[in-house]
């Protein structure tokens, strides 16, 4: 899909959840142990694509997320590879304790793949906008947390998840995201992806904000500020080695996430930098507040989840670095 707006260049966008559904359907053929569960949102999460092809291996659990996660865990210890999906708020909030006790505690091989992460849920409003899910999942031992930047990375991450033994959380979105990767490359858990090198400041993003930091880096370059741009799709385990390298080479870091600045990507980065090589880390993300109803683009601007906010943060980080 191509969108032309008055003040922005042509941006190709693709749906992460479409990529999820299509990849699940592929896995249905290659991985007979893959089973899929949903909590009455299979149309929205796109697990319906799998359900259509493999109805015997799809289980609609109704609006009962806690039970869905428990059932997935029971299937996993019986040799299945369950993918359990619903909106991010319900997957990680409503069923958090089931994920803790029935999945993570025993290191059980369940994949929680949630759509509708972040503010771009839009008009449905704050009850449905997950701004804490990364923090909730990151706190759990054994849990890996993946936030793909685009549709191609989603497909790679989902394929990776099917072969990875252990719990994973993959956060997807309702909205289509700008294309960052022209083609899918094998997903590498725990490895950040350097998209561009620059000596002045490192911009580290995940999910939708990866494309935002690319846009910010372009505009910073116009002002003579050359940024390194990193897509940090794995929030846990975080790529410590790369972060330490970024602190060494750039001396200032900006993180950007469509999530609360408490407990998400920014926190993960600050933890590593603070304990290893203290340099300024400025976090762009949602403050400790709830979202609102509205169009996604308007919400991103309202809450400062845009290139302008990243540029401002980069300048602040530079000032601290040079101060």
């Amino acid at each position: 899909m191509t969108i032309q707006t008055s003040d922005k260049p042509v941006v190709e966008k693709k749906s992460l959840r479409d990529a999820y559904g299509a990849t699940l359907a592929e896995l249905g053929a290659s991985h007979p142990a893959v089973v899929v569960l949903d909590a009455d949102l299979s149309g929205s999460t796109r697990t319906a694509t799998f359900a259509k092809k493999y109805p015997d291996r799809f289980f609609n659990m109704g609006v009962a997320e806690a039970n869905m996660i428990g059932v997935a865990a029971g299937m996993a210890v019986s040799g299945k590879i369950p993918f359990a999906s619903t909106f991010a708020v319900f997957a990680t909030g409503r069923a958090w304790e089931q994920i803790r006790q029935s999945v993570c505690l025993g290191n059980v091989n369940v994949k929680v793949v949630a759509s509708h992460g972040g503010i771009t849920v839009g008009e449905d409003g704050p009850s449905h906008q997950a701004m804490e899910d990364i923090a909730l999942m990151r706190a759990l031992p054994h849990m890996g947390v993946i936030v793909p930047a685009d549709a191609a990375e989603t497909a790679s991450a989902v394929r990776f998840a099917a072969d990875h033994v252990g719990p994973l959380y993959i956060r997807l979105a309702r909205d289509k995201f700008p294309v960052v990767h022209r083609e899918a490359t094998p997903f590498r858990l725990g490895k950040g992806e350097v998209l561009r090198n620059g000596p002045d400041v490192a911009l580290v993003g995940c999910g939708l904000m990866t494309s935002t930091i690319i846009e910010a880096a372009d505009r910073l370059a116009d002002e003579g500020i050359m940024a390194t741009v990193v897509n940090m799709a794995t929030i846990k385990p975080i790529d410590e080695e790369l972060l330490i390298t970024l602190a060494t080479t750039c001396g200032a870091i900006v993180t950007a996430e469509e999530h609360s600045i408490i407990g998400g990507l920014g926190s993960a980065v600050a933890e590593v930098i603070g304990e290893n090589i203290p340099v300024p880390v400025i976090k762009v993300g949602m403050k400790s507040e709830f979202g609102k109803s509205g169009p996604p683009e308007a919400l991103l601007d309202y809450f400062g989840l845009n290139a302008a906010a990243v540029i401002e943060a980069a300048k602040k980080a530079l000032a601290l670095k040079n101060g």
Binding site: V35, A66, V71, G74, E97, Q101, S102
Partner: peptide, 23 residues
């Protein structure tokens, strides 16, 4: 399978029973 937080075991058993039926 690990248990102890009350209310979760029957769901685990349902998952096992569904997997058993598939296999």
């Amino acid at each position: 399978i690990s248990t102890g937080s009350l209310g979760q075991g029957l769901s685990l058993a349902v998952g096992m029973a569904l997997a058993g039926r598939l296999d």
